[in-house]
Design a protein around this nucleic acid. Structure first.
Lengths: 212, 212
DNA sequence: TTTCATATCTAAGCGCTGTACAGATGCCAT
DNA sequence: ATGGCATCTGTACAGCGCTTAGATATGAAA
């Protein structure tokens, strides 16, 4: 774990302490969970004094914001990948599945992401991929809805559909972590079947397909 | 705010300090938000020493559990009331609306409730009304689904529907607090219309009705 | 009525936290 | 070479969760 280089090898000026601090925070988060993520512990892990982080972040919340930001980038990449691996209507479900799986595989990070979001009462819409055409994860959902038949000119209705899909994914991401639903997963033959079933239960797809 | 009675009026033995501590915690939570909810602050608010709470709660988490428990009771009452005030299919939407409104009106409490749930990776299913026939809020949703046409013998499918409904409500409760959806609410003519629209977008109702 | 075990509270203190501030250090432009 | 500036250290403070030892009140037994 401990990244602290020996005193002689580490120069007084760190090089890129900001980067090192965010990395240290993510290492701690994964290893010890959210409750172990103190500013001082992060500084220790990075091998600097407790006051050093304040030259790169206004306060602890700003450090956590940086960690959360990288979380949203990771989520976006996961969703981008899931979309690329599927075709047709399955793409929307695939987006949802990849969202929930990200939350399952990075529970501490997911919590930091939404704690920050709740504090500022906003989802971070400014997270962008290297290729800005991809937009952020939220826009990806909206674009995918359009690709599969949603009417882009009905802006209000389209945004409503996007919100509904996002709600479903986030809600399911939190519920799927609860123990009382374990038996449901088992009965349905696994987690994947469970997620599919719940998503299918919610009418999130554009309503342009044949019949009911 | 401060509940600390003058030294002479307050006996050495408090009477019901446990009750007083939970009340003090809820007062603090409402007035100052979740971040101000320290054990010491609660003890101060209740007018006792910082160590006193430890005779009634194992640790801070157990105090927060007690606060959360009362939150689930309140939520249950709100949903019970919402169901009583409506009829027919509107009952399900009414349950969802009352859920989201509870989260909107008690954001700090709602956060404490789910923080505790995430920590123990389980929703508290043991919260009961004075009338135990009502069961808890989660069961209420399931029962309401049955009343409106869901097949109670298809247990797995029924539970799936309940999970989907709960996911939708929780997801929407969190999203509805975010600023970027303000304009959507405005365009739809108010919060109530927004919530209705999102719920309607998700096919959460039993599928026994006419046509598509 | 006195006695005493027990439940409840206080006082003091430990190690931790986030944050502030003064000063040391090293890089860069002059 | 020098001086300004960003960066880092050392130290300090108040507040935190929690522990321990001891004070105090209550209710049951004698």
């Amino acid at each position: 774990m401990s990244e602290a280089k020996s005193a002689e090898s580490r120069p007084y000026h760190h090089g890129d302490l900001r980067r090192a601090l965010v990395d240290a925070a993510r290492r701690l988060l994964e290893a010890e969970g959210p409750s172990a993520l103190s500013l001082r512990a992060v500084a220790r892990e990075a091998g600097v004094s407790p006051a050093a982080p304040y030259h790169h972040f206004k306060d602890k919340a700003e450090l956590l914001d940086a960690v959360a930001h990288e979380g949203w980038e990771m989520l976006q990449l996961a969703m981008l990948d899931a979309k690329a691996r599927t075709q047709g209507r399955e793409q929307l479900t695939a987006l949802g599945i990849s969202y929930v799986c990200f939350a399952r595989d990075n529970p501490a990070l997911y919590r930091v992401m939404y704690d920050a979001a709740r504090d500022k009462e906003a989802l971070p819409m400014d997270v962008e991929d290297a290729n800005p055409e991809n937009g952020n994860a939220y826009c990806m959902v909206r674009d995918t809805l359009i690709e599969h038949g949603a009417d882009p000119s009905a802006e209000t209705h389209l945004e409503l559909a996007t919100v509904a899909a996002w709600c479903a994914a986030h809600g399911l991401a939190e519920m799927a972590g609860f123990k009382q639903f374990e038996h449901l997963k088992a009965e349905l033959g696994g987690e994947r079947q469970f997620l599919d079933a719940v998503f299918n239960h919610m009418g999130l797809f554009p309503k342009d397909h044949d019949g009911c």
